[in-house]
Amino acid sequence: MTLSTKLFFLLSLLLLTACHRDLDPVAFQADGRPPKLSDWHVVEVRDGKLVLNQGVVPYDLNTPLFTDYAHKLRTIWMPKGVSAKYDPTDTFDFPVGTVISKTFYYPRTADGKFSDVARTFDTSKDFAGEGLDLSQVHLVETRILVHRESGWAAIPYVWKDDQSDAMLARTGAVIPLTLVDDKAAREDFNYVVPDESQCSSCHAQDWVSRKIHPIGPKARHLNRDYHYAAGDENELAHLVKVGYLSGAPAPADAPRNANWADEHASLDARARAYLDINCGHCHNPKGAANTTGLTLDVSVPEDRHLGICKPPVAAGRGTGDHLFDIVPGQPDDSILPFRMNSADPGTMMPELGRSTVHREGVALIKAWIASQSGGCVAIH
C-alpha cells in the first residue's frame, strides 16, 4: 500500500469518526414503531451526507433483488458481545437486538429535477466513505428489519422531500418518479413502498409459521468484496473480524453466487443467481409459492422443479397461453420470461417490489433458456 493510499484511508477514518461523534448511539427499539428513522440512529443525515453510525456495517449482495432500478445501501448493526451464527445455506442466525437497514435511492439526473431519477448501474458517485452523498442521490425509502424477543419485525420509512429524515409509513406509499437513461429516454412509473403486511409476505420464508426473516444475508450472497472506508475486504471475513459473525469458514470454502451482470461468469451461474435472489424466497418448498411446484432457489437441480417442461399449476392470463414454465431453447414460448417481462399486476412476477420491467434481467433469462437444448411434449 502506497503512502498516499494510507493517508487517504486514515483521512477517511478520521472523517467517519468525526461524524460518529455527532450521533447518539444506535437505539435498539425492543417494541413499537418509532415515528422517525432517526429514532434508531442507524443512518442519519449530517452535513449533506447520509452517514452510518458507529458499529453499523454496510454490505452488498453478489446479485441483488431488482427494485425498479433503485440502488440500495444495506447495513447490519448488533449489540456488543453477540454475533450471528454462520449457516452455509440459509440466512444467518442473528441474535435478538440485530437491526438491519436497507435504504433505496437513485442517482440524481443532470438537470436536478427532483422527480427525475437516473436509470443507471453506475454507483461511482453514490458513496461518500461508507455513506451516501446527498448532492448525488435521491433518497426514497429505508426499511428496518429488527430482531426482537417476539421475532423479526419489518418497519418501512419514507424519506421527506427535503431529505432530512424518513417518516414511518406503516401503510406504504406511492411515489411518482421518472426514470431517465443515459440517452435521455424517459419512463414514468409509480414507485411503490410496501406496507408492513407486504413486507412480511416476502420475508416469510416458511409459509406455515409465517415468521419473517432477512433474505439477503446468506453466505452465497455475501461472499464478495466490499469497498469499506479502510479498503476492500471480503464481507464474510469482515463480519468475522468485527465480531458480527461466528463459525464462518474461509471465504474460499464458502458458497458464492455469481454476479448476474458479470459476463466472465457462466450464463447458467448468472441466471441461477438472478432467479435465486429475485424469486427463490417465495418459490421454494416452504415459501409462499410452494403450491406451484416451481422451485427457483439456487440449490434445485435443472429439471421439472426448476420449471423445465413443467406445466403451470393454474392457467389464465399469467401464462400468456404458454404451456410450460420453461421450454428449452424457446424463451418466447416460456411462461417464466413472459411474466418477468410484464408490469401488469395480474401477470407480472415477482408480484411485489417493482412497477417496471427489468429489461436486462429479462434478456439474461431469455438468453439462458435459449442456450438450453431439448424440447417439451404437450400432453392433451
Rank of each mutant, 00 (worst) to 15 (best):
Y226S: 00
E233C: 10
A288Q: 13
W207L: 06
I277T: 14
G216A: 12
S299G: 14
E196S: 11
G247D: 04
V300K: 14
H281F: 13
G216F: 04
R270H: 02
R270V: 01
A230P: 06
C309I: 03
P311K: 10
C282G: 06
V208A: 15
P251G: 04
P285A: 01
A258E: 01
P214F: 04
D225I: 06
G287R: 04
D262I: 01
A254Y: 01
R270K: 11
Y228M: 08
C202S: 09
A250E: 14
E263Y: 11
H283S: 05
L296V: 07
R304G: 06
R272C: 08
A250D: 15
E235K: 02
P285M: 09
D232I: 11
S200Q: 12
L275Q: 04
A237M: 11
Q198C: 06
D268W: 12
G247W: 08
C202P: 02
G231N: 07
G231P: 03
R210D: 09
A269P: 10
L267N: 07
H213N: 15
L245A: 00
A288Y: 15
C279F: 01
P217M: 03
P311W: 03
V208C: 10
N223W: 00
L239V: 08
H281C: 14
H203G: 03
H238T: 11
A248T: 06
H213C: 12
G280T: 05
N284H: 12
Q205S: 08
N259M: 13
A258Q: 01
R224E: 07
D232Q: 15
R256M: 13
D195T: 01
P217T: 07
C282Y: 02
D225L: 14
L275F: 10
E196D: 08
L222N: 03
H227L: 13
W207M: 06
P311V: 13
W260L: 09
T292C: 08
G287V: 04
I215G: 06
A265H: 00
G216E: 09
A271P: 03
E302I: 12
C199W: 00
C282V: 07
D268S: 15
A219W: 01
G231M: 05
C309V: 01
H221I: 08
A230F: 15
L267K: 11
H283P: 05
Y244N: 02
A273M: 04
A204Y: 00
A273R: 02
A271H: 09
G216W: 03
L275D: 04
G247M: 08
R304K: 14
I212N: 01
D232F: 10
Y274W: 15
K218P: 05
S200L: 03
R256E: 14
E233M: 11
I215N: 10
D206P: 03
H213I: 12
Y228P: 05
T291V: 14
E235L: 11
